[in-house]
């Protein structure tokens, strides 16, 4: 159905949509002629200082103002001036570190466990109720319990990432391993390949595309959850940064953070996409 569209045509249309969107935004937030006419009490205006010119409200910045701010932030993304003033690159790096640690630990647990569950119908049936109940729990609901039992907010954030990324990897690994073709297993059996060799040379590559799909879902969820987790935990990370900028009423920075979170999430997904291509096979 979908005829192939030339890259330049689609890219051109994308740019056009972006230009219209940004242009409309810029026009919409332009200061109205006649000034912020809200009459302020002179004493209050004196207290507010510069902000009095805005009539007591923070204006929504336009794309040009955000662009300028983005340039400032990206010019020096890795500065550290005290715990509450660190570059956006440093914040993203903290978030990536937490996601990497939580996701990595989850993979170390979920893939071997999923393998065992996939190979054993008994274990599969026995563990299924637990997985089904725990899987829909919002990872943030674990946060108080994590804070209480771990007593360290940084590790608690990693734990929340761990608990949210484990389920898709566990379920996909178990499914992938359980649905390896009987005939391939029979080949391995007639070759007396043994458990270990069968697992590594036959089951793992056969299930690898399904496993990587699970990892891809997990990393997406982990990146969604880290922002919320860091808002709760505070200290460092892009989620904390967003909340900090909200407290500062730096709307431009919040918009920039949204953009950055989107771009990093895209990069993570593409990374796993490359992994998926590497292990894909076709009959």
């Amino acid at each position: 159905m979908t005829a192939s569209v030339s890259f330049w045509r689609s890219a051109g249309l994308s740019l056009l949509i972006l230009a219209i969107f940004l242009g409309a935004w810029e026009i919409a937030v332009m200061p109205k002629a006649g000034g912020g006419g809200a009459a302020l009490d002179p004493e209050y205006a004196a207290l507010l200082g510069q902000a009095a010119a805005q009539g007591g409200t923070t204006p929504m910045p336009g794309p040009s103002a955000i662009g300028k701010r983005l340039f400032e932030l990206l010019a020096d993304p890795f500065y550290v001036r005290g715990p509450n003033d660190q570059g956006i690159g440093v914040q993203i790096a903290y978030s990536l570190l937490r996601v990497g640690a939580g996701f990595g630990l989850a993979a170390i647990v979920a893939i071997p466990l999923g393998f065992v569950i996939g190979m054993s119908p008994l274990l599969n049936a026995a563990l299924n109720p637990f997985i089904q109940v725990l899987r829909p729990v919002s990872p943030l609901a674990w946060m108080p319990l994590a804070l209480y039992s771990i007593k360290d907010s940084a590790i608690s954030a990693v734990f929340v990432i761990f608990i949210c990324s484990i389920w898709p990897m566990l379920l996909n690994t178990a499914f992938g391993v359980a649905s390896v073709r009987r005939e391939w297993l029979n080949v391995a059996r007639t070759l007396e390949a043994g458990r270990w060799r069968t697992a590594i040379r036959v089951i793992l590559p056969a299930a690898a595309p399904t496993i990587v799909t699970g990892m891809r879902i997990s990393i997406g969820i982990a990146w969604l959850v880290i922002v919320a987790a860091e808002m709760l935990v505070g200290g460092t990370g892009i989620g904390y940064w967003v909340w900090n900028q909200w407290n500062n009423l730096s709307i431009a920075d919040i918009v920039i953070a949204i953009l950055m979170i989107g771009l990093v999430g895209l990069a993570l997904d593409r990374l796993l996409g490359l992994g998926a291509r590497a292990v894909a096979w076709r009959e």
């Binding site: 073709r181 005939e183 391939w184 029979n186 080949v187 059996r189 007639t190 070759l191 007396e192 292990v279």
Partner: peptide
């Protein structure tokens, strides 16, 4: 009591591993 390398099987649907 089980399969053996001494009895090789050619399967009906070739049963080749597609990733190799």
């Amino acid at each position: 009591s089980g399969p053996s390398l001494d009895r090789a099987v050619v399967f009906q649907g070739h049963a080749l591993m597609p990733w190799m």
